[in-house]
Computed example of a mutant assay.
Amino acid sequence: MEIPKRFKGKVAIVTASTQGIGFSIAERLGLEGASVVISSRRQKNVDVAAEKLRAKGIDVFAVVCHVSNGQQRKDLIDKTVQKYGKIDVVVSNAAANPSVDSILQTQESVLDKLWEINVKASILLLKDAAPHMQKGSSVVIISSISGYHPPAAMAMYGVTKTALFGLTKALAAEMAPNTRVNCIAPGFVPTNFASFITNNAAMRKELEQQTLLRRLGTTEDMGAATAFLASDDASYITGETIVVSGGMPSRLIISLSWLLLYL
């Protein structure tokens, strides 16, 4: 399949992009012509990822950035603008899941970390980036299908991902009409981040059976969906979440009694 060149001349920042879903998003945007700014917490990781992307002919700029570090977030934006003079696309992909405890058993410090990285960092990153974003620019926030149905082993993580659905709606209104803001909610994808789930053969089979397509997603699936939302092909889409899960159940459920209050 020939990959289109929808991002020729555009500059895209992708956070947490040295492996997994983030790397595939950066790769897809780069193969479509974007100058891609990748980032991660460690210098070695960004260097290795940058070499892999350059080997495919992609123009890549690598910056160390821990998204919960205010100075490093600012550096990511400032260095991008210094090098390219603008920002066309921001993909907020960074996330953490440091606990498998139930919500009421989760330590306060862990709750703070989950909120800091999974939600607050996206807001602060876009606060720094917004003044440099072009008319017709795009933001894609990476959430998760767990935001619709938080599983017991990652319940608070799921709650932070639910928050991103609301954040997408709110920012779409706030950043309109010059910048579109959308979200993708990946299903279960075999990555290092999800290995504690997808490496378990029985659990993996059960997850596959929950999909209509009878398979887990790939990082390339997520890259393709993100590229669509970020591209001009989606120029009349904003404030929306696209679920990329092979048909797994994926909607917030409103009880009938609550709905009847408004009828």
Rank of each mutant, 00 (worst) to 15 (best):
A49T: 02
A49K: 00
A50R: 07
A50K: 09
A50V: 06
A50H: 07
A50G: 14
A50F: 07
E51L: 09
E51G: 07
K52C: 06
K52Q: 09
K52P: 02
L53F: 06
L53C: 06
R54I: 09
R54L: 09
R54A: 12
R54P: 10
A55V: 09
K56L: 15
G57V: 02
I58A: 04
I58W: 05
I58R: 04
I58Y: 05
D59H: 12
D59K: 14
V60T: 04
V60M: 04
V60C: 05
F61D: 08
F61E: 12
A62V: 14
A62G: 11
A62I: 13
V63I: 15
V63F: 13
V63T: 14
V64Q: 10
V64D: 07
V64L: 14
V64H: 08
C65K: 07
C65H: 07
C65T: 10
C65R: 06
C65E: 08
H66A: 13
V67W: 12
V67M: 14
V67G: 12
S68D: 14
S68Y: 08
S68M: 08
S68N: 13
N69R: 11
N69G: 08
N69E: 14
N69W: 09
G70Y: 11
G70T: 13
G70K: 14
G70F: 11
G70S: 14
Q71I: 11
Q71K: 15
Q71G: 11
Q72Y: 13
Q72T: 11
Q72L: 15
R73F: 11
R73V: 12
R73M: 13
K74T: 09
K74Y: 09
K74I: 07
D75S: 14
D75C: 12
D75F: 10
D75P: 08
L76T: 02
L76K: 05
L76Y: 04
L76G: 03
L76S: 04
I77Q: 00
I77A: 00
I77N: 00
D78G: 08
D78P: 06
D78T: 13
K79M: 06
T80F: 08
T80M: 13
T80I: 12
T80N: 12
V81W: 05
V81C: 08
V81G: 05
K83F: 05
K83M: 07
K83D: 06
K83S: 07
Y84I: 05
Y84F: 15
G85N: 00
G85Y: 01
K86F: 09
K86I: 08
I87F: 03
I87K: 01
I87D: 01
I87M: 03
D88Y: 00
D88R: 00
D88I: 00
D88S: 00
V89M: 04
V90N: 01
V90L: 07
V90T: 05
V91H: 01
V91M: 02
S92Y: 03
S92W: 01
N93V: 01
N93R: 03
N93K: 03
N93L: 01
N93E: 03
A94H: 01
A94C: 06
A94I: 03
A95P: 05
A95M: 10
A95L: 08
A95I: 08
A96G: 07
A96W: 08
N97V: 07
N97L: 09
N97Q: 12
P98A: 07
P98G: 06
S99H: 04
S99V: 04
S99P: 07
V100N: 15
V100T: 15
D101L: 01
D101I: 02
D101G: 00
D101W: 02
D101Y: 02
S102Q: 13
S102A: 14
